[in-house]
Computed example of a mutant assay.
Amino acid sequence: MTWLLVVLGGAVGAPLRYLTDRAVQARHDSPFPWGTFVINVVGSLAIGMLAGMASAGAVGPRTMALLGTGLCGALTTYSTFSYETLRLAERGRGGLAAANVAASLSVGLGAVFLGLTVARAVFA
């Protein structure tokens, strides 16, 4: 039955990723992949909060399957991040490619840490 929760979460996360990416990217006249960047940071914050809530006993395995694995798994996208970074490099924008990698990793890790810390403080 857990697999069904993952499917349901993914069915919401995938279109949410697409729509959010299009909305964010439409507001920027830049080759930098802002849509994917924003989605991955928000997803990192969300999974950090969910992990913190789970460690405090505020959510159980079913909620983690639905929201963590399903929703956040389909919402965030390492493959798109990788592809967009490669495309920047291929188009002679190595500086933007490097900035995408550095910013995505540092801000993403910061977001997951922040989410975990906040959730643990609130739900402990």
Rank of each mutant, 00 (worst) to 15 (best):
H28F: 04
L116V: 04
F32W: 10
R62Y: 14
E90D: 15
L16H: 01
R22W: 14
L71G: 00
I47C: 06
T76W: 02
P33N: 08
G108A: 05
V59A: 07
G110P: 04
A56E: 14
G70N: 07
G9R: 05
V59C: 11
A23P: 06
L19Q: 13
V7I: 08
L109H: 08
D29L: 11
A65W: 04
L114M: 10
L71I: 14
N40L: 04
G95Y: 09
R17D: 03
S82G: 15
M49G: 13
T20Q: 03
V107L: 13
T80L: 00
W3A: 09
W3K: 05
Y18P: 01
A65Q: 05
L88A: 09
T76R: 00
C72T: 14
F123W: 14
L86D: 13
T20M: 03
L66R: 01
L8S: 10
S106N: 13
A51G: 15
A111P: 00
G95M: 13
R22Y: 08
G35V: 05
P15Y: 05
E84W: 12
L88K: 08
R93D: 11
L19P: 12
T20E: 02
S30C: 13
G35H: 02
M64T: 02
S104L: 12
V38C: 12
R62I: 07
I47N: 05
G13L: 00
A14L: 12
G43M: 03
L19I: 11
T2M: 07
R120W: 01
G110H: 04
A26N: 04
T85D: 05
C72L: 08
A14D: 05
Q25W: 03
M53L: 15
L109W: 01
L116D: 11
W34R: 09
P61F: 05
